[in-house]
Simulated assay, not measured.
Amino acid sequence: MNDKKILRVIPAEKVNMGGIILDQPLPASGIDQIDPFLLIHHWDSELPGGQHQRDVGVGPHPHRGFSPVTFVFKGDLQHRDSLGNDATVTSGGTQWMHAGRGITHSERPSAAMAESGGPLEFIQFWVNSPAAHKMDNAFYLPLSNEETPRIEDEGYHLAIVAGIYEGVKGPAPTLSPMTLLRGGIKADFSCEVSLPSSFNTMIYLLDGELQINNIEARAKDLVQLGQDGEAISILAKKDTRFIVLSGEPINEEVTSYGPFVMNDQTQIMQAIRDAQMGKMGILIEDF
């Protein structure tokens, strides 16, 4: 089995999203996407408490043409949408949403967390949808930590959110072939990860320090690996939490504008008109 070649190590940049400072490893300078992955945002903050839920998180907004996926690491997030879904996912859980032809949703810390305060940490990443599925019906799936299968060995664990890894199938449905993992490894331990050579693969470190195929990576680095092998060797220099995003490239044109990801500008203009006309649903939050 050949090693996957490391193409680059991308340090996350600080970005201001409506007054919220996030770490963004993707897109990065000169890198619009790593097909099929479009964006990665890492939110890590301390809520002060004493707040109303309406004043925290992200209020109702539409999406079309891709899947925004959220891995929750600390605290909780409540999802509401125009399909009538209302679910709160806590540490270790995942919010999985396929926007399809259109959906309006909000993501906020729960009312209890807004009041009590505490650490809130999550990663949201956007997965492109193939053209054939961009106008499918939208759907939402909340996954708890307990509903996410894990592989554990001495010094490390891997949770399989989507795809099949070492014979274990993740519960999240995907529209193109991919494997999505959440991992943790203790200092001085090692593990081997094997993924198809045809997949574009990334490893993002939430914290800690790893040696990946003999290349050093530190907290908030994104390691991009190529399509020339299957094997990934991971050695922990420090206790580290990480995610693995690996998928078959879709190899289609991508045109995006804000919360819409389509294949051409005409489709983007239609998405904007449809959102303005309420065709992506209406969400009125009840506080």
Rank of each mutant, 00 (worst) to 15 (best):
Asn214Tyr: 11
Ile234Lys: 00
Asn16Val: 02
Gln53Leu: 04
Phe122Ala: 02
Gly18Ala: 10
Asn263Cys: 11
Ile185Lys: 06
Gln53Lys: 11
Phe71Cys: 02
Arg101Ala: 14
Val161Cys: 06
Ala138Phe: 00
Arg54Ser: 15
Val9Gln: 00
Met280Leu: 11
Arg8Trp: 00
Arg8Cys: 00
Ile151Trp: 11
Gln267Phe: 07
Gly167Ser: 08
Tyr140Asn: 10
Asn85Tyr: 07
Glu216Asp: 12
Ala275Trp: 00
Glu248Trp: 03
Thr88Lys: 07
Asp55Asn: 13
Glu166Trp: 08
Asp264His: 14
Val244Cys: 11
Gln267Val: 05
Leu205Gln: 09
Pro177Phe: 03
Leu180Ala: 05
Gly19Leu: 09
Lys238Asp: 13
Ala217Glu: 02
Glu248Ile: 01
Ser129Gly: 04
Gly84Glu: 02
Val161Met: 14
Ile40Pro: 00
Gly118His: 09
Glu216Val: 13
Arg101Val: 13
Ala112Asn: 12
Asp264Trp: 03
Glu209Val: 08
Asn213Tyr: 12
Asn85Thr: 08
Ile21Ser: 10
Phe125Ala: 06
Phe139Gln: 06
Gln276Thr: 04
Val223Trp: 06
Gln24Thr: 04
Gln276Phe: 03
Arg241Asp: 13
Tyr257His: 13
Arg54Asp: 08
Met269Gln: 15
Ile103Met: 04
Glu253Trp: 01
Asp35Gln: 08
Pro249Cys: 08
Gly184Gln: 08
Gly93Pro: 05
Tyr156Phe: 15
His42Trp: 04
Leu222Thr: 04
Ala187Pro: 06
Ala187Arg: 15
Gly229His: 11
Ser246Lys: 11
Gly57Leu: 14
Val56Ala: 09
Ser197Met: 10
Gly84Val: 01
Leu181Glu: 03
Asn214Cys: 04
Ser106Pro: 03
Leu195Phe: 13
Glu46Ser: 11
Phe71Met: 09
Asn263Met: 07
Ile268Gly: 06
Ile272Phe: 02
Cys191Ala: 14
Pro60Arg: 08
Ala271Arg: 02
Gln78Asp: 09
Ser110Phe: 10
Leu47His: 04
Asp286Cys: 00
Ser256Leu: 10
Ser144Ala: 09
Leu83Asn: 08
Arg80Trp: 01
Ser194His: 09
Val56Gln: 06
Glu152Thr: 14
Ile151Pro: 12
Asn145Gln: 13
Val72Trp: 09
Ser190Gln: 15
Ser190His: 15
Pro119His: 15
His79Arg: 07
Ser246Met: 04
Ile203Leu: 15
Gly100Asp: 05
Asn16His: 07
Glu147Tyr: 01
Gln33Ser: 05
Arg182Asn: 14
Ala12Cys: 05
Leu245Pro: 00
Ile34Asp: 00
Ser256Lys: 12
Glu248Arg: 07
Ser116Gln: 11
Lys220Ala: 06
Thr104Cys: 02
Tyr257Phe: 15
Ile234Leu: 15
Ser194Val: 03
His105Ala: 05
Asp264Pro: 05
Gly93Asp: 07
His63Glu: 06
Phe189Met: 08
Arg182Gln: 15
Arg150Lys: 15
Leu180His: 06
Pro60Tyr: 10
Asp274Asn: 12
Gly247Glu: 01
Asn200Cys: 07
His61Tyr: 05
Gly75Glu: 05
Thr240Pro: 05
Asn2Pro: 11
Glu152Asp: 06
Phe125Lys: 01
Val193Tyr: 02
Asp228His: 07
Ser233Phe: 10
Pro62Arg: 02
Phe287Glu: 02
Phe242Glu: 03
Thr94Ile: 15
Glu230Asp: 12
Pro11Ser: 05
His105Ile: 02
Ile6Glu: 03
